[in-house]
Design a protein around this nucleic acid. Structure first.
Lengths: 363, 363
DNA sequence: TACATTGATTGAAACGTTTGAACCCGATTT
DNA sequence: AAATCGGGTTCAAACGTTTCAATCAATGTA
C-alpha cells in the first residue's frame, strides 16, 4: 500500500488518496476548530482513508509546529527499587486525564545516565520533569541546563527546596515517631534501632522522631543497640546491613525485644538474621520496617511498617508540576506528606517474662 | 538571556550570538562530517556560546529532518510486576552502547492504555517496539497499525511467533521439569502442585514438564493435590491463590511434604498459609517458586525457585530488535531461553518419618 | 446589478533542523 | 593568464505538520 520512503504514512499520502489537499486532511484529522466547516462527506471520507492506511500523525512534526509536546519526563534514580513504582503510578494517574504523556527513564543508579537522560528530556522538549530520588543524589547540575531552558522541575524523595526546586518528601520525623510509639505501646523497652545511612536526607529526621518519642515514653535508648547503615550501594544493601547487625547483636548476646529498622528491606534482613538464630518473629522479637513496599506485604510474617503515601506523593507531584507548566507558578517549596502506621504480623508484645530476647527459643 | 518565545535556545540564537550562519552552527554542533572543514577557531567559538546558552538540539526538528529517531519503545504490561524490571534493565544494557534510547511505558494492566501507548509510540516514530507481556494478553491488534507502518516489534513473555511476531519466552517445560526433579531428588513423593491460570501460555508447558518428570521418577501425582489458579487479576492474585489453596489442603488434612507453586508470588502465599498453620518451611514442608523475582530473594526462608534469565531475555530482545531495525531481517521466530534451578532455603528433604506433612508441629 | 455573506477548500508560511550544492577567495597548477 | 583547487562558509530545500489568510462558488441582500 502507499508506503512512502519513510515507511510511515503521512498527510500527503492521504491527500493524494482522497483527492483533497493536505490542509483539509490536516484540519479533519486533527479535529481543528475549522473542521466544523468541512463538509460532512469530506470528513468521513478522509477519516476512512486515514484508518485504512493506518495513519498516525507524526508527533515530531506536530510538536515542532505546535510548540508543545504534551510530554512530561519522569526520571527514576533506580526503578528496581520497589519504592518507585507506586509513585510512578500516582503520577500517571494524574497525568492521564490531562492529556499529558509520561516519558519514564530509569537511571539505574548511574550518575552518567542521569545526565544523559536529562539531556534527552530537554532535547525532547519535555514540558516538565519529575525526578524520583529513591536514595542518594549528590550535587546535581540540574539547575544549570534545565533552568536555562526554563522547564519546570520537581523532585520526590529529597529536599531541594532550599536550592529553589520544589520537593515532596514524607514527614520522616513523624514517621519515626509513629513507629517508635507503636513499639512502646506494645510494651517494648529494649529496642534496637538501625538508622539510615548518613548520605540520606531521610535518616536524620526519622531518628529524631524516634528519640523524641523515646524520651516521651521515659525510655532510654541503649546506644549499644543503635546502629547505622553505611553507604548506599543499592536497594539491597539495606537487607545485608540488617542481617549483619542482627548477627552481631546476637553474637554479643545483647538483649532486645524489638528492632526498628530504617526501611522495609533492612527489616527483611533483620527477620532473616533472627530466624537464622532460631528466633521467632514476632513472638521472640518484633520487627518494624518503613516505606511499605511490596515485598514487605508478601513476606511472612507480613511486615508491620510505616507507610509512605507513595501513590499520593506521585499524584501531588504531577498536580504541582502541571500547575507550574500552566503558569500558576508557586514559590518552590517543600511539601511534607503524612506517613501512616500499618500494623501487620511482625510486631507483638514482648515475650514474658520480659527482657531478654534470647530466652524464647524455638523447639 | 536570549530566550526566544519558545523558551528554548535554538540554532538561530547561537547564530546571532556568534555571527555565523545557522548552517555553520549546525554543522559544528551536530559534528557533521563537514565540520572538519570549519576553522578551528570558529568551532570552539560556537561551542562555547552554545554551552553558555545551554543549547540542546530539538530532538523533534532533528528527527523530522533526519528521518530517524534513535528511539525504541518498551511497553510493559504491568511494571509493578517485579518480573519486568530485570528485563527492562537487560534491554537498556544492550541499547545503551548502540545509541538508542528507550521509551518506557507502563500499561498498568489497562487494555485501553495499551492501545494509547502503542499509538503514542507510532506517533513518536519509534524505530522499534518491545512488548513485555508479564501475564495476560488477549487479542491484540498490534498487527494492524504497527505492521502498516512497518515498525519492527518483538514480544517477551508470550508466544506470538505463529502470528508472525518474534517472541522470547523461557522454556517453561524445562523449568517445570527442573523444579520437579529437584523435589524428587530431595526425596519428596507427596507433592502438591499449583498450576498457573489457563489464560497464561506458561501454564501448560510448565505443567507438562512437571508431569513428565513425575512419571520418569515413577511417581504418581495425586490429583487431589493439583490445583489451578483462576483468573489473573494482578500479580498479587497468585499470592492470594497460594494462600487459599494451602488453607484448603490443610483443612482437608491432605498429607503432602512439598508444594510446587506456579510462580514466586504464589509460593510466598503458600509459605504464609503454612506458617499460619504453625508449619515450618522447609522442615515440615518444602516450597518452590518460579521466576526468581526480588521478593523471593529477600523473603525468609529465601525461596528456592526456577530462575528465568530475565536480564538475558531483555538483552536478547534488544539485540534481535536492533538487527531487525538494521534490516538484517530474520524470520519471526520463537526464542526459548534456558531456566536455571536456584536452590535456597525453602526446600529440604521431607520430614522423617516421611509422609504426612502435619506431623512436624511447631513447639 | 453590485455587494456583502457564508461555506468549503486550499496556498503558503512557519516550526528548528540537516545537508547537498553553491559560493567566495586566495593559492597552486598548467 | 586562465584554469583548477580547496578551505571556509552560506543558500535553500526538505522533513510532516498546523494555521492564518486567501480563494472561489453560490447564496442572500440592498
Amino acid at each position: 500500500m502507499g508506503q512512502r520512503k519513510s515507511g510511515h504514512v503521512t498527510l500527503l499520502d492521504i491527500a493524494r488518496a482522497s483527492g483533497f489537499s493536505i490542509s483539509t486532511v490536516s484540519i479533519v484529522l486533527s479535529e481543528a476548530p475549522l473542521s466544523q466547516n468541512v463538509a460532512a462527506f469530506t470528513r468521513t471520507h478522509i477519516r476512512t482513508i486515514a484508518r485504512q492506511l493506518g495513519y498516525h500523525p507524526d508527533a515530531y512534526a506536530r510538536s515542532l509546529r505546535r510548540r508543545t509536546t504534551q510530554t512530561i519526563g519522569i526520571v527514576a534514580f533506580d526503578l528496581s527499587d520497589p519504592f518507585c513504582i507506586p509513585i510512578v503510578r500516582g503520577i500517571q494517574a494524574k497525568l492521564q486525564p490531562s492529556g499529558y504523556f509520561p516519558l519514564l527513564m530509569d537511571v539505574q543508579t548511574q550518575r552518567a545516565l542521569f545526565d544523559d537522560y536529562l539531556h534527552m528530556l530537554l532535547e525532547r522538549r519535555a514540558d516538565g520533569v519529575i525526578v524520583i530520588a529513591s536514595w542518594v543524589f549528590e550535587e546535581m547540575n540540574l539547575l544549570g541546563d534545565v533552568r536555562k531552558n526554563n522547564v519546570p522541575i520537581l523532585i520526590i524523595g529529597r529536599d531541594l527546596s532550599a536550592r529553589g526546586t520544589s520537593s515532596i518528601l514524607v514527614d520522616n520525623q513523624e514517621g519515626g515517631a509513629l513507629a517508635m510509639r507503636h513499639l512502646c505501646e506494645l510494651g517494648h523497652r529494649r529496642i534496637a534501632v538501625i538508622r539510615g545511612p548518613q548520605e540520606l536526607c531521610d535518616s536524620e529526621p526519622r531518628w529524631k522522631g524516634i528519640r523524641d518519642v523515646a524520651v516521651q515514653c521515659g525510655m532510654q535508648l541503649d546506644e549499644r543497640l543503635v546502629f547505622q547503615l553505611l553507604g548506599v550501594a543499592g536497594p539491597a544493601s539495606g537487607f545485608e546491613g540488617g542481617l549483619q547487625y542482627v548477627r552481631a547483636m546476637l553474637a554479643r548476646r545483647q538483649p532486645f525485644t524489638a528492632v526498628l529498622a530504617f526501611d522495609d528491606l533492612t527489616a527483611l534482613g533483620v527477620v532473616r538474621g533472627l530466624r537464622e538464630a532460631g528466633l521467632r518473629v514476632p513472638e521472640d522479637c518484633s520487627v518494624m520496617g518503613f516505606d511499605d513496599i511490596f515485598p514487605a506485604e508478601v513476606a511472612t510474617p507480613a511486615m508491620t511498617t510505616i507507610r509512605q503515601p507513595l501513590r499520593e506523593m506521585g499524584m501531588e507531584a504531577a498536580e504541582r508540576l502541571l500547575d507550574a507548566i500552566r503558569g500558576k507558578a508557586e514559590k518552590p517549596r517543600l511539601h511534607r506528606t503524612r506517613p501512616e502506621l500499618i500494623v501487620r504480623m511482625s510486631t507483638a508484645a514482648p515475650p514474658v517474662p520480659a527482657g531478654n530476647a534470647r530466652n524464647g527459643r524455638r523447639r
